[in-house]
């Protein structure tokens, strides 16, 4: 069974005038059909206002579809009786860590979710411990959250979601406010959860480098999914991405520029290692050719 299944999902934001009458609607998500298997790492790209966050908010029933359906682990999000189960299955982490931390001590903050779910005290502590260990923040369990760096706070936010034992975590631009180290920490934690614990991850981001390890990349524009594929497939389309106000990882861009300057490199190079390997192979070929020519003369 798919963990997330949307079918022709559309969502309209309704604008009201001062008297509360409907002035008009804006379609933020439009006819999105999508299925995510358990344990997948999905990245969602798209420019500001392309509908990424609106889509994400459907996955834990913060928003309900105007048209179409969303099923989370087999539960229809529109059914009120499922609300808490849906939210427990799909957790969310937002952009600003300061808006998501409420506890005075790290471990209390992480325990807040399971406590609200009525988990027995002993088990709460077990969950807090394992969640903090999973994101590498166990050593900071007695700290006050306001003594932590942005990346650390964001990892505590993830642990807080993790303690509710979700099958799926949606991360909505979790690194937008972090410094390079903080970004690395958070992405590393998300990948570890995915690979080790098998948690399904949906990552929304504007940093192209963060998605190269994803199983599937979705690109959104005007509320629709306009591109879908492996990172290599998606990032091979440099010009199309640019038209969508997006970018490609710096390595991919460099390879693309070299290609344009006449070097025969393949499309969609994603890492520095790949580029080095390709250039080394190319150079060896050139040297062989040069030797051959020399031998002919």
């Amino acid at each position: 069974m798919n963990i997330i299944e949307t079918s022709h999902l559309s969502y309209d934001y309704i604008r009201h005038d001062e008297e509360g009458n409907v002035e008009g609607t804006t379609r933020a998500v439009s006819d999105v059909t999508l299925s995510v298997k358990p344990g997948q790492f999905i990245a969602i790209l798209g420019h500001n206002g392309s509908g990424k966050s609106t889509l994400a908010k459907h996955i834990n029933a913060l928003l309900l579809p105007s048209e179409g359906t969303v099923f989370v682990d087999g539960m229809d999000t529109r059914e009120e009786g499922h609300l808490w189960d849906v939210r427990q299955t799909a957790g969310m982490v937002f952009q600003n860590p300061d808006n998501q931390i409420i506890g005075q001590v790290v471990e209390e903050d992480v325990g807040f979710g399971p406590e609200n779910m009525g988990v027995p005290t002993k088990e709460i502590w077990e969950r807090v411990e394992e969640s903090l260990k999973a994101v590498g923040m166990y050593a900071y369990r007695k700290y006050s959250p306001n003594k932590l760096s942005g990346g650390q706070k964001q990892r505590v936010s993830i642990a807080g979601v993790l303690a509710m034992h979700p099958k799926c975590i949606v991360l909505d631009e979790p690194t937008a406010m972090l410094d390079p180290n903080g970004r690395k920490e958070v992405i590393r934690a998300a990948r570890a959860l995915n690979e080790v614990e098998g948690v399904t991850i949906l990552l929304i981001t504007h940093y192209m480098e963060e998605v190269i390890h994803a199983d599937t990349v979705l690109v959104m524009d005007e509320g629709r999914v306009v591109m879908q594929g492996t990172p290599r497939e998606v990032f091979s389309r440099v010009e199309q991405l640019r038209q969508l106000r997006l970018d490609v990882p710096q390595v991919t861009l460099l390879a693309y520029e070299l290609q344009k300057s006449g070097l025969p490199l393949p499309d969609g190079i994603l890492t520095a290692d790949e580029l080095t390997a390709e250039l080394t192979a190319l150079r060896e070929k050139q040297e062989r050719k040069a030797k051959k020519e020399k031998a002919c003369h």
Binding site: S149, D179, P180, N181, G182, E209, P249, Q250, V251, L254, A272, D273, L275, T276, L279, T280, R283
Partner: peptide, 20 residues
């Protein structure tokens, strides 16, 4: 100190190590 160089700088370091 928690920062980094631009990514292209890392790529060039890699290439240099590989003898470019």
């Amino acid at each position: 100190v928690g920062l980094a160089a631009p990514q292209v700088t890392y790529i060039l370091h890699k290439l240099k190590e590989s003898g470019f």
